[in-house]
Design a protein around this nucleic acid. Structure first.
Lengths: 348, 348
DNA sequence: TTGACTTGCACAATCGATGGTGCTTACATA
DNA sequence: TATGTAAGCACCATCGATTGTGCAAGTCAA
């Protein structure tokens, strides 16, 4: 790159046109790939391209977007960035966007419904081409906005009846996770301190609802005594989750025999509390975490995990947008990561 | 929102103008906040705003951006999304952007220099207003591009001589972390299996260079014997890091007495290998990780950590852009998270 | 009644890229 | 020479919002 030219703000097709003594439309055509149809001579095309390269020309995508009513932007709306599951979704989303020559815009809305719909409107204003919404609060409202603006969109985690959606099979995920917990509880049924508990998440939220359902099924099928009070959806906040666990611990006089923690975020709160407990007490409880984190696989105590296939979710979402099938719901099975049990790594 | 109107693509000031029987320029002024200067009557303003609200009008930001040569977009370029440190930066970056009424665009370039500069050009084409670059490969080249386009930008983690930059005090961070490791090594100096090792990261990269320097200082000041071969920057890839550790383990016939793992990403690779080792062997090695992850605080073995203050880094970066001081370098001290030692949580 | 202002708005140009519609040449054919 | 036809390009409107400027109607004082 010859970087020693004048610091003119940014070169346009008009600058190039002036230098080559051609019209802006000719320049535009020459830089695109339809110059044959416009019968621009190959010679002219090459002169124009040379000058464009020398000037370091890049098209003004706002102008192009204005003309085409498109922008080349695809957006992903999700609750948070700093969460392993969501950031994995981001990573996959961005990779695929760039494969398709699109520019990914990822916005976190902090589980705030107002921020969520404001963001949708904002993104609409930028004329984004496609919208992916993860764990929407009110999918139908968003669908309405998008339909009015004729914006192609797809939901992940929380489906909409009015648009294509992809979700993990949360019910099966939670059921399988619950069964993993039940299967590795050291004490015979009924002997445990206080059964298995479901902790964390937002009961109003779609995914959590399904997971609770899966938990219920597993509990019903097990020989464990249980009741609805063992379900404690304390929100997704680590602090709140910690408090719930503190309360539970005080009430029971110890940890329950099993604990299914809904989301890695809540799990952080749980860990924080566990840090203050004696090792042997922790070891009497079997843990499960909905969502996967590689670090969790080597904690001081075994943790069963479920991993949502972020890659598959994103791929499927893109494909649903490619083929204009309306309002189709795709369900993707999660993967299970049973804990390496303590005994197996004590080796010999 | 009255959602039952015709699905016209998107309302513009022209649509509003037609309905209110006013000119587009009047509508534009009325919707902005300079209608007083343009002497639009308050009555007219209110009529226009009412209609705008009813039509669900949102401004076309591409058109506005085209006119203003600005877009309202601020961009953050970083290596990856799915890394606790980077995603925390994202989170802080996005929050502050929205506080300022800007739309955050976050792009991962996977530590690929070509993708990095291509992305910068891409973003330039979208007329972004400000650019934040994390862990740039070639900051000076990026600065050049940005200067030519008169784009305000700031570097994080890897400074540029030609633009404002914010970094963590990596040398001190690594020195302190090394000292934490040295201080908690159970065996007297020289008795350990093979001293303390530095593993992971990219030696060509600025942050890693500084961290290695800090490691060297700590080692020199300690009574531990050591040499340069104890520094093994294997890249940031978990797989590669694992391989390096496998080799080291084979060469030494066991783990070293101390291991400073450079980045949480590499730490994943280390964990994967450790998972197959007997517990007592792991316990003979003291671990440190550059970067913090809440989960790492409760692993089966103690891990000292250093946390970069992502919030402060981002805040400072924004402030550096606010006040046009050129090429100022700000250094921010990291926080130390010494491991809760094993004994302390065995409690009584 | 007339000039001097003010009020309240409309007109038109502009940002950069694009694509439809011409308008010149050159060359060929009758 | 007149006519046809292609090649090679220029001109102009357009996307939607913004802003400098102009212009009519109303108000006021002399």
């Amino acid at each position: 790159m010859n970087a020693s030219h004048k610091p003119q703000s940014k070169s346009t097709i008009y600058d190039i046109a002036r230098e080559v003594r051609a019209s802006p439309s000719t320049v535009s055509a020459a830089l695109g790939d339809n110059w044959k149809k416009r019968r621009i001579s190959e010679d002219t095309v090459e002169r124009i391209r040379a000058v464009a390269a020398r000037q370091g020309y890049t098209p003004n995508l706002q102008a192009r977007g204005l003309r085409h009513a498109r922008s080349g932007l695809v957006a992903l709306i999700l609750p948070h960035h700093d969460n392993k599951y969501f950031s994995s979704l981001s990573e996959s989303f961005a990779r695929e966007a760039r494969n398709r020559g699109l520019c990914p815009v990822i916005v976190a809305t902090h589980r705030d419904p107002a921020e969520e719909s404001a963001t949708v409107r904002d993104l609409l204003s930028y004329a984004i081409d496609q919208l992916f919404i993860v764990a929407a609060h009110d999918p139908d409202a968003i669908s309405q906005i998008c339909h009015d603006a004729q914006l192609r969109h797809v939901f992940i985690d929380h489906p909409s009846r009015h648009a294509p959606s992809v979700i993990t099979d949360n019910r099966e995920g939670a059921r399988g996770l619950s069964n993993l917990i039940l299967a590795s509880m050291p004490l015979p049924p009924g002997t445990g301190l206080a059964g298995v508990y479901f902790l964390g998440g937002d009961a109003d939220q779609f995914a959590t609802g399904d997971r609770i359902e899966g938990f219920r099924e597993a509990m019903r099928q097990s020989s464990q005594p249980w009741d609805e009070n063992q379900i404690i959806p304390s929100t997704y906040d680590p602090g709140k989750t910690r408090e719930s666990l503190v309360t539970l611990h005080a009430t029971l006089g110890g940890l329950p025999s099993g604990l299914l923690v809904n989301s890695i975020t809540c799990f952080e709160g749980v860990l924080d509390f566990l840090g203050g407990l004696p090792e042997d007490e922790i070891n009497r409880c079997v843990f499960g975490c909905y969502d996967y984190d590689p670090l969790a696989a080597l904690l001081r105590f075994p943790v069963h995990m479920v991993r949502q296939r972020h890659r598959a979710l994103i791929q499927t979402a893109y494909e649903l947008l490619d083929t204009p099938e309306p309002a189709k719901l795709t369900v993707i099975a999660p993967e299970f990561y049973p804990a390496r049990l303590r005994s197996s790594s004590l080796g010999t």
